[in-house]
Each structure stands twice: as structure tokens, then as C-alpha cells.
Computed example of a mutant assay.
Amino acid sequence: MNLFNLNIENKDEYYNHAIEYFNKITVEDHNCGNFDNIVPKSISILIHHDFIPAPCVEIKLDILQNQKKIGNYFLYISEQKEFIDEFLIF
């Protein structure tokens, strides 16, 4: 699959993939307490980055607590949907 030919119908698959990786992080790892919801935000193709191997797919999730955004989770995967990196920002 060519990264530039990502099929929009597969977006739920990409978001589910990111949520699955996010759920592997324990509460102790992110020290945010409880959160209400994880909201799919965007899927992007990363062409160049200083320290993340590119090109790759960036999947962004918003993390909500009491209906307010408290953070973001970013998952970076290869064209073959293999894990590259992840960032959790609060």
C-alpha cells in the first residue's frame, strides 16, 4: 500500500489501532488519574521528522476528562501498520 493512497474507509481501523496501543499504557505510566473518553482526532501522513522515521502514519487521539481535553496521544506506524513510536502529552 502506498501511504498517499490511504483509503478513507479504513480510518476506523487506524483509530482502533491507536486506541489499542493507548490502552496498553497503564494509569501509573501517564499519571492523569481517570479520564472519560478517548476521541479520534486526526490521521496524517508524516513526510519528514527530525527523529521519527518517515514517511509514516500519525494517528492523533484527544483524551478527555469531565468533557474537557486534558491531553493527546500520538501513534506513529509504518506503511505496514507496524509500531514506530508513540507520545502521550498531558
Rank of each mutant, 00 (worst) to 15 (best):
residue 2 N to K: 07
residue 56 C to K: 01
residue 66 N to E: 13
residue 45 I to R: 01
residue 33 G to P: 09
residue 14 Y to V: 04
residue 53 P to I: 06
residue 13 E to P: 02
residue 32 C to K: 15
residue 38 I to N: 12
residue 42 S to Q: 04
residue 17 H to Y: 10
residue 78 S to V: 07
residue 1 M to V: 10
residue 22 F to G: 00
residue 18 A to V: 05
residue 51 F to Q: 11
residue 79 E to R: 13
residue 82 E to N: 07
residue 83 F to N: 03
residue 12 D to C: 11
residue 2 N to R: 08
residue 83 F to S: 03
residue 62 D to R: 12
residue 78 S to Y: 10
residue 15 Y to Q: 01
residue 29 D to T: 02
residue 53 P to N: 11
residue 81 K to D: 11
residue 47 I to S: 15
residue 5 N to P: 13
residue 63 I to E: 00
residue 21 Y to C: 00
residue 35 F to P: 04
residue 87 F to I: 12
residue 60 K to P: 04
residue 61 L to F: 13
residue 21 Y to E: 01
residue 89 I to Y: 13
residue 61 L to A: 09
residue 24 K to A: 03
residue 73 Y to R: 06
residue 65 Q to C: 04
residue 84 I to E: 03
residue 49 H to D: 04
residue 63 I to W: 02
residue 64 L to P: 01
residue 2 N to C: 06
residue 31 N to Q: 10
residue 54 A to Q: 08
residue 25 I to E: 05
residue 3 L to H: 02
residue 29 D to E: 07
residue 18 A to L: 05
residue 38 I to G: 07
residue 89 I to R: 12
residue 31 N to H: 13
residue 58 E to G: 00
residue 51 F to E: 10
residue 33 G to Y: 12
residue 6 L to H: 10
residue 23 N to Q: 15
residue 33 G to H: 11
residue 3 L to Q: 02
residue 25 I to T: 07
residue 86 E to T: 04
residue 43 I to Y: 10
residue 3 L to M: 05
residue 57 V to C: 00
residue 39 V to Q: 11
residue 9 E to C: 14
residue 82 E to I: 02
residue 59 I to N: 01
residue 60 K to D: 07
residue 37 N to R: 12
residue 52 I to F: 02
residue 24 K to H: 06
residue 88 L to Q: 10
residue 30 H to R: 14
residue 51 F to W: 14
residue 9 E to W: 13
residue 88 L to R: 13
residue 90 F to E: 10
residue 60 K to Y: 06
residue 69 K to F: 06
residue 76 Y to Q: 02
residue 20 E to R: 08
residue 76 Y to L: 02
residue 37 N to T: 12
residue 30 H to W: 09
residue 14 Y to S: 06
residue 21 Y to M: 00
residue 43 I to K: 06
residue 58 E to Y: 01
residue 82 E to Y: 05
residue 70 I to V: 08
residue 72 N to Q: 15
residue 13 E to N: 04
residue 54 A to L: 10
residue 42 S to E: 06
residue 54 A to N: 09
residue 42 S to H: 04
residue 20 E to I: 08
residue 64 L to M: 03
residue 52 I to G: 01
residue 27 V to H: 15
residue 16 N to Q: 11
residue 15 Y to L: 02
residue 75 L to E: 03
residue 58 E to F: 01
residue 62 D to I: 10
residue 44 S to K: 05
residue 66 N to V: 11
residue 61 L to I: 15
residue 48 H to P: 03
residue 8 I to M: 14
residue 79 E to S: 13
residue 23 N to Y: 14
residue 19 I to G: 00
residue 4 F to K: 14
residue 18 A to Q: 03
residue 35 F to I: 05
residue 70 I to W: 06
residue 13 E to F: 04
residue 36 D to S: 14
